[in-house]
Write a protein that binds this DNA or RNA. Structure first.
Lengths: 367, 367
DNA sequence: GCCCTTTAGCAACAGCGTTGCTTAAGTGGG
DNA sequence: CCCACTTAAGCAACGCTGTTGCTAAAGGGC
């Protein structure tokens, strides 16, 4: 229980919600196998009786169900509890320059429906909102049978934008999008809550929920180079959703001119090397930036993703890893920061976008 | 009310402590003038009656007192409440290679006693602990009259160390300190709680408490170059207290060799320029690193400190500011990130160290 | 089959912030 | 000057939280 919610005081209602979210989060990580009431009590520090009461409420709400019994340890066996996946759903929308991906996920984050189609950001905001809305409606309507409440739509896009207000700042190449309130426009059109975030943040959130613990950086190497930062389990967006601008970090003073106007940005160096076919150099440059990040933030893990990484994953992991290993050796650290390819692949951003709506249920704060 | 305390559940006792800390924090920021119960209620979202109950408990504990009345706005005038400064004290200890500074501060953070003396880290751990302990005892004993409970001692030192366990990793130039459990040794010797942290973190904490809001970076340019990061009001230390290693960020790939063994670190470039007498170049290099930091973390403010900055404050502020201004212009941001010289001066680290013990009282989480 | 161990729930309870109302302490109009 | 009005602060009762004490349920081992 800490102060991050804008300095607000807490009453009994807040307390209840907090503990309920805590339980749900533990139940989610436990997965299909479930977790017993007593283990929930141990993990939270609450009394078993409190856990019984809280889980009873969650069962009444249909969010939690019993899932068999565990082996006895000499007495009455523990009853496992698990999340009810179909108790709630969320849509994740990944909008790119020329393509749209949409997923419908259940409460556990499992994908129960997906769609993919062309998109033209140049067609104007109204047309794009309409296309996106139709995809969402198709996805939600296309699933047969009873569908637990759809909590809303998470939208992930590249480029600078404002998560708090759901407004786009700029969409590279399409000045007509400047300042467009995408969140509210889509919410009004669909009649359900919408949350907007950067693609890299959505991907990082998805990875955090999937089980990556502690603090890590997700580096995305695609048409641009960006990062999603997870610090202490929460996505770090900064005051204006600007955090994670990894690509325009300068690592070569007075180096070649970058598209942003500065010189020696990691993006121009890295993508330049890729263009020359020198993947090892690209990985080395990326590694230097990653090492800067690791030192600055003391993170535990670096995850790589994006089209360019996907083309040669091992070489990038090896190249970035080499730089981090060298750094660890210089520092005398016991073990270097590991580097891996992010799971999720092409759908990772859309799945993470859906988590923008699920996360609050599990006590993952908005910031 | 958020989840940062290791996943623990919250009971009524935790709720009470949380709201009490919230009140104390608001009372502290209100300073000598105080703040009315109703304003506390507005700021926290709690009902006026709840505020009355909570502040009544705090008054019973002697932490809060009435401080006059405000002007009437047509009815009964509001009663101002303020912290009782002498209700608690803490010691801040700043240990450098060759010098020791110690301050005794009251609950509001005001300095009520200070000491300064030579120190030789090469004299060995036992001797240093003894010298430090004597300074603390002298400081605590030297204040006449009733002294509210001394909560403990905050110790700030350079170099890599582990805040969580209170253990030094390395002290540059003194290998015999490797792994020394300074926190526990000093705590045993003094019989009071001790908290250990990096000097830059202590300075940043002190600045955060002094009223710098939101997220900022404190860049310290002294014998080395380090940073203290405050994100969302809390010091970001990272998993192993390693965060803030700003100086060994590479900004000149394959540049000159640094003392750390890498090439093109900001520290070797910046201090090299200072050595050549080229302050403007040093400021430009520092600015490039600051711009990287601003982009990566989306912070609101950059504060400069340390001996070298103190020698030519305006030129550093101007030089770093110019780089950040150029960056803001490229980004099309409405206003550039401001740069200032950190208040606190030579005693800033020691004062911040004392806040390591006061901060928990005011709900400023340990991490 | 009995005893023991362990789990889960029922009932009473202390303590939290909230609600409804009363008292305190000012201002300002007639 | 006094009285009506406004605003602040506290008292009492209340609903709800997690906790405590105890009981019932359910399995294993001798």
């Amino acid at each position: 229980m800490n102060r991050t919610n804008g300095g607000g005081g807490a009453n009994l209602y807040a307390l209840r919600g907090y503990n309920a979210a805590l339980m749900l989060d533990l139940l989610r990580s436990a997965g299909r196998a479930g977790i017993s009431r007593l283990e929930l009590a141990e993990r939270t520090g609450l009394t078993p009786q409190a856990v019984s009461k809280i889980t009873a409420r969650l069962r009444d709400d249909g969010l939690v169900a019993e899932a068999g019994r565990q082996a006895s340890t000499g007495g009455k066996p523990r009853t496992s509890l698990r999340l009810v996946p179909e108790a709630g759903h969320a849509v994740g929308l990944h909008l790119e320059r020329d393509e749209l991906r949409a997923v419908l996920v259940d409460l556990t984050g499992a994908v129960v429906g997906e769609r993919r189609g062309p998109l033209d950001l140049g067609a104007g905001s109204e047309a794009v909102v309409e296309v996106a809305a139709r995809e969402v409606e198709g996805l939600v309507g296309g699933v047969d049978g009873e569908l637990g409440a759809v909590l809303g739509v998470g939208v992930a896009m590249p480029g600078p934008l404002d998560h708090t207000h759901g407004v786009l700042h700029r969409v590279t190449g399409f000045p007509e999008w400047d300042g467009f309130p995408l969140r509210d426009a889509l919410a009004r059109r669909l009649g359900m809550p919408v949350v907007l975030d950067k693609d890299t943040n959505a991907a990082a959130l998805g990875l955090a929920v999937e089980g990556e613990v502690g603090s890590f950086a997700y580096l995305h190497l695609g048409t641009g180079l960006g990062a999603g930062l997870v610090l202490g389990g929460a996505v770090h967006r900064g005051a204006h959703t600007g955090a994670g601008e990894f690509g325009h970090q300068v690592i070569q003073l007075d180096g070649p001119v970058c598209s942003c106007g500065d010189r020696g940005c990691i993006e121009v160096l890295c993508l330049g090397a890729v263009a020359r076919g020198d993947v090892d150099e690209a990985a080395r440059v990326l590694g230097a930036g990653a090492a800067n990040l690791v030192g600055l933030l003391d993170i535990d893990l670096v995850l790589l993703g994006g089209r360019i990484v996907a083309a040669e994953p091992e070489r990038f992991v090896r190249g970035v890893g080499a730089v981090l290993d060298a750094r660890a050796q210089r520092e005398g650290a016991s073990s270097p920061v590991p580097v891996r390819v992010a799971s999720g692949g092409e759908w990772g951003v859309a799945e993470g976008a859906a988590q923008l709506l699920l996360a609050p249920l599990f006590g993952r704060a908005e910031d």
